[in-house]
Amino acid sequence: MVKKEREKLRAERIARTALMGAVLFVSQAALAFLPNIEIVTLLIVIFARRFGREAAAACFVYVCLTALSSGFGVWWAVYLVIWPAFSLLAYALRRIDSWALWAVINGAFGLFFGAFFALAYLPYSRSFALSYWISGIPWDITHCIGNFFVALLLGRPLDAGVKRISNLIER
């Protein structure tokens, strides 16, 4: 491949990663008024299936933007691991094309979201980690139900929309 073409590809990737990160951030902010209902998980699945490991980089952009708007803390360190890890999982499972199955996977991710945070608090205090997890269970269940229905209802149309936009850009 000619050097110029390679540079163009790299620039494209950087721009796409930044754009995906920004879309994740805006979508999270837009739904912030609905507690634990979000489309970030679904968008990460769509991005990971379509753009592979670039989605993990987009997650870093998203997490950094979130920190700039909400401040840094223990939660941020967990975000830094949890979202890119989930995007890599989605990439590994990219051959799944049933949105019903993605709804279950996203629902499970929502259900265990609080538990992942509790794991981060384990070295600090075991009892605090346990109480943190238990007190957040009602929110985890909301997250699970929200993620399940968001993926089930919006998975196919959003995926088609992202495909259309990326085809337009590539043309």
Binding site: D97, S98, A100, A103, V104, I105, G107, L111, F148
Partner: peptide, 13 residues
């Protein structure tokens, strides 16, 4: 097969 796994997964959830 994916739909069957989804149904079982939904029941487990």
């Amino acid at each position: 097969k994916q739909l069957i796994i989804a149904a079982v997964g939904a029941a487990v959830l």
